[in-house]
Computed example of a mutant assay.
Amino acid sequence: MHLRTFRAGDLEALLGLTGRALIEATSAAMRAAGCVVAWASTGGDDAHASARAAYAAGGFTPLPTVFYSRVLQQVPRGRPGSRDVPGGPGLSARSSPLRTRRAGAHSVCMTTRRQPGFVLAIVLAAVAHLVAGYFYLASGLMAPLWAVVLLLVWWAVLTVVGVRLVQRRSYLVLLVPVVAAVSWFGLMSFGGQVLGWTP
């Protein structure tokens, strides 16, 4: 979960929430979403002293962490959403490393919850891919050694792709065992019909 930058003064005027009440409400929403840890970041300069005090009062513990930023390109003057800010003329206020918003912060949290449907997709894909791996290993009954090695390397590559898809929480992981099965069947059919592979 990621909460975008906010200014407590604006939200107080809009929602009637003080900085402390906003922190408590946000923490409660994160807790309800299954988050176990919350991080909040704000500026270390004098302009953000009130924000640091609010987070400290809200139970956040300051950590000795340094965030680095770098301006990658200049934004032409007159472009919507850009203005002169400390750090150089013509830079976007959204990209400047010296941006100072009073009581502004980014908050993120780590969650342990997963969607049941996606967990089921992971299980199905893993089981199907393991079954495909068994056929890859058994290919030696018909295919020569070089073909078996090629198949196992391809199976390992697909395994890595599947892990990365899981990390991205993509349902495309279900296609990994399908690709593995089609690849195995295609190579074995080609070997039997063209290369003369026989059991």
Rank of each mutant, 00 (worst) to 15 (best):
A47E: 15
A138Y: 08
A56E: 13
G186E: 07
R164Y: 14
C35M: 11
E24I: 09
L150C: 13
A132F: 03
M188A: 11
R169E: 15
A28V: 06
M188V: 10
L137W: 01
V66Y: 07
S96T: 01
G117N: 02
L145P: 07
H106C: 03
L72M: 03
L158F: 00
G162I: 04
G34M: 03
A53K: 13
M142H: 06
G81Y: 00
A128M: 02
S139Q: 05
Y55D: 12
C109Y: 02
A93N: 01
Q167L: 10
H129E: 06
R52C: 15
A143C: 06
R114M: 13
P89H: 01
D46V: 12
S95I: 01
V161H: 06
M110S: 15
R31A: 14
G59P: 02
Y136C: 07
V176Q: 06
S189F: 12
V127I: 05
L91P: 02
H129D: 11
L98N: 02
G9V: 10
A47S: 15
R101E: 12
G81D: 01
S95D: 09
Q193H: 11
E24K: 06
S107Q: 05
D10G: 11
T65S: 11
V66M: 08
Y171S: 05
F135A: 08
A21N: 06
D45R: 10
A28F: 09
L141T: 10
S183H: 14
P86C: 01
V37S: 13
F135R: 03
V127L: 12
W197H: 03
A8W: 06
A57N: 05
S96D: 00
S139D: 04
Y134T: 09
S107F: 03
L11Q: 10
P86T: 00
R101V: 12
G117W: 05
A105W: 02
R114W: 12
L11E: 14
F60L: 08
V153M: 10
G43Q: 13
R114Q: 07
S82W: 00
D84Q: 01
A103V: 11
V119D: 14
P116V: 09
A51K: 12
G90Q: 00
V119T: 13
G133E: 02
A143V: 01
L151S: 06
R31K: 14
Y55F: 13
F185M: 15
P199H: 07
V160A: 12
V194K: 04
H129Q: 09
G191P: 04
G58H: 06
A51R: 05
L72W: 03
T198L: 07
S50L: 13
V71G: 06
L120H: 10
Q73N: 14
A21F: 08
L17F: 10
A53R: 15
G88K: 00
S92H: 00
